[in-house]
Write a protein that binds this DNA or RNA. Structure first.
Lengths: 206, 206
DNA sequence: GCATTAATTGTAACGCGTATAATTAATGAT
DNA sequence: ATCATTAATTATACGCGTTACAATTAATGC
């Protein structure tokens, strides 16, 4: 009657393996058939288990989607990194980054929906959109671009860089969001709006 | 066997009466218990009919919500109109309008969700978010404010006004959207971001 | 083999939006 | 009044996310 009886609980490697298996199937489902195809019942079928088993490994659907966000963001920022390689001019690099960012979401509305519009407001129970260090690094990368672009004309303090980076990201997401959800309004071309945001943010002395 | 056989279809007044009855109950449901409470089954119960009956009068849930959007927007812009009365300075008026707009959605996330985040991307089958002439007039009102504010420094052409208005609205919605959905990131204060957007948009010569 | 613990599964339920088919209600013709 | 015809309503069912709970299977030490 010692304390070590019965089945041993899984070690962390095993736990992670099962979680990754589920995530991979979810990703495959999303890539092959889009956002709508990701349902707990279908996912379970793909994984080869009962729907309830998934709930033993994840708190809920949104906690699975969270991992897909990371994959999509990886794609976006890998595209950005790839595109800005061609230029060494800080302003141009920021320009390319912003345009690539906006363009991606407009060309892939399903991805936009997955990352920004799945689950309700405030994303409760999510480990956090930005706890993920990789995701956070994307933000920092953007603020680095902003800082260098601003440095072309003056020496910005960190407060200005943060405010303008936050403003730029919010504006970019807003532009994409509006283009995607209020599709019937004749918006100014997203590309032009991004340009406007950049030139105004960079030339103002605020 | 003349052409006029069988039950007579409802006249337009009757059709409208039923539709308004449904809309009113939906609105009451939203005001009393929030966004989550608006379900077709609960709505039907309030109206006193079977859930499917509603589908004979509306294409779907989103077509009902559409009418609630108009009510909410009316509230928002009535607040805006009320607040800018205190000032005659064009720049300040635009400032107050933008701040009021952003503040409203941050203070009422449920309303933001209703108007901007209900239903999926592209809002298919919706009569159109902006076919509604009142809603469209809100947009025009904003562009009027932008034009007058710009006129303080130069004479803007209509292209600049439209681009800057679209940019401002997108940015405002983006700021609110980010604050609401990516709540764990330490965003610059929305108020400050709105200020940044305004000063940069107004001072740039683009 | 047996008790013990872990992990998975089955079943049922709740409420959701909605497609389809069956049903009820009203009307003109007979 | 009965019947066909058309309009309006409703019942039923599907898949969805999620939860609760019982039943089952799997692994381990004795």
């Amino acid at each position: 009657m010692s304390a070590k009886m019965g089945r041993k609980p899984r070690n962390k490697a095993q736990i992670n393996a099962v979680r990754e298996k589920i995530i991979n199937h979810a990703l495959k489902l999303f890539q092959n058939e889009g956002y709508e195809a990701i349902s707990m019942r279908r996912l379970a079928k793909q994984v080869g288990c009962a729907p309830m088993t998934i709930y033993a490994h994840f708190d809920g659907k949104i906690n699975i989607l969270q991992h897909l966000w990371a994959v999509v963001l990886e794609t976006v920022f890998s595209q950005i990194h790839n595109n800005i390689k061609t230029s060494k001019n800080p302003t141009e690099r920021l320009n390319i980054a912003a345009q690539t960012f906006a363009q991606y979401w407009i060309e892939n509305p399903d991805h936009f929906r997955l990352v920004f519009m799945s689950a309700g407001i405030t994303r409760p129970d999510v480990d956090s959109f930005l706890k993920n260090k990789t995701t956070l690094s994307h933000f920092k990368f953007f603020s680095g671009l902003v800082m260098l672009a601003l440095a072309d004309t003056h020496t910005p303090n960190s407060a200005e860089v943060k405010a303008k980076t936050d403003g730029l990201i919010s504006a970019l997401i807003g532009i994409v969001f509006c283009a995607n959800t209020i599709a019937d309004y004749p918006w100014t071309k997203p590309e032009d709006m991004v340009n406007l945001m950049l030139t105004t943010l960079l030339t103002s002395k605020a």
